[in-house]
Design a protein around this nucleic acid. Structure first.
Lengths: 243, 243
DNA sequence: CTCTAGACATTGGACGTCCCATCTCCTGTA
DNA sequence: TACAGGAGATGGGACGTCCAATGTCTAGAG
């Protein structure tokens, strides 16, 4: 009965500490009951009764947990422990980026910096662990990208897929999710600013270049080309932000 | 059944898309009104009226935005656009980590991997931009850590401070926040598992070693020692998780 | 016997109202 | 001038009610 850490006198504390405490209690409840990813949570009413708070209050916490990717809420069905999912961060970070663009776009640029550091820093390890299968997958993605480019379609999906598969060998879900978040935020900011003209062929060629370096297991070259790739992205962003 | 021109009738969409849309509307409202960090938001009632949704509904979204670090809510005073703040992620990631520890601790380990990649990958750039002031700050932190170690106190604060200051030269708030989040999550998971015996002197010496390499601007050595530092952390975690 | 359409129960979504808790600021008094 | 206390505003919370979505069960058609 790990009621543990029950506050004794919520008299002078509290601010938003209470709601945070409630979120924690719900997460603890999941852990204590041994619920795992995909398992059903108690209903809102049950939680409300069990935790001794109103249903609205519980709902506020649940919405937060949903936003944090802890639980998944399905209307008319129930709530479940969610698989790792960082999509929530996207909203917050996108907001940050757009907010910063009103000044000098510093935060948006920082985001690119982090992405660049992560990707160009990890490409070496990824190449070490690269198998033929991974390479084949990567090539498939590239071919799809080329097709899309020829048709004049957006490359968003393929671009994202490329970067995702590039680091698949590392077998690190957290990393993939994180990079995905950054990628999506960049895209959203870019969209929000209104996309300038895009050179689909050039974009595709950039990726082919990276692919080639990776296929040759040339770590230094791959890292450098990734670096350059991000320099390009950074320039494009700076360009649009200057408007 | 003639549907009399519903105002906003995303009839078939409705899922949690609605609440997400509401969050977006609030963020857009902030951007449209040109509100900046620290500025006051409309009150809950105003938002409720303006967005045409109930106050409870608006509150759920506001709580989420608070969790995402977009706004700051001060009971009895008002709501404000928040400075960048990732503390929310800590909760979610910590939960993930603890959940994963019931299996094989994979996710917790992934977190260390990402931290390791980020830190050892970026130390080079940080050293490039290192000034005497940064170095002096770092030394101050180390001395404080040593003091604490001698007194037998926990090194948490100093450890965090060290890693934070190590990358201060990069002048990238996002990165600092991100690493801070990872650090806190690691600490929380570690605490939740029950801390084994800690060797304060060894821990301090590890950091001194890193400091030394940085002070000598020896990028390779610094990177290697950071790598080793994280290997130690990883072992400790694996050790505790095995229980 | 099988398949499908519709009723039903369950569960989350939204809202309104009422009252409490907390904060800031202003006023009045010493 | 300084401090104490009140007023007003704002968020926090709890019910209760009704709506909407979803899965399941059942009855009827074939």
């Amino acid at each position: 009965m790990a009621i543990a850490s029950q506050e004794v006198s919520p008299a002078r504390f509290s601010a938003q500490l209470r709601s945070h405490a409630l979120q924690t209690r719900i997460m603890d409840l999941i852990l204590e009951r041994g619920l795992d990813v995909g398992d059903a949570m108690p209903t809102e009413s049950e939680l409300s009764a069990e935790l001794g708070v109103g249903r609205n209050t519980v709902r506020e916490s649940l919405k937060v947990l949903q936003a944090l990717g802890v639980i998944e809420i399905r209307h008319g069905f129930g709530m479940f422990v969610a698989p790792n999912n960082f999509s929530a961060l996207v909203s917050g970070l996108t907001f940050r980026g757009r907010l910063s663009l009103r000044h000098k776009g510093e935060e948006a640029m920082e985001l690119i910096d982090v992405r660049q550091a992560l990707e160009s820093g990890l490409i070496g390890s990824a190449i070490d662990l690269l198998t033929d299968q991974h390479l084949a997958d990567l090539r498939t993605t590239m071919e799809a990208m080329e097709d899309a480019a020829k048709k004049g379609e957006h490359l968003y999906v393929h671009d994202a897929e490329f970067h995702r598969r590039l680091y698949a060998p590392l077998n690190n879900e957290l990393l993939i999710n994180l990079m995905d978040v950054f990628w999506q935020v960049y895209r959203k900011i870019h969209l929000a600013l209104g996309t300038g003209p895009v050179n689909l062929e050039q974009q595709t060629q950039d990726h082919w270049d990276i692919y080639e370096a990776v296929a040759n297991k040339d770590k230094a070259l791959a890292s450098e080309r990734l670096q350059r790739h991000f320099d390009g992205i950074r320039l494009k962003l700076k360009d649009v932000a200057a408007s």
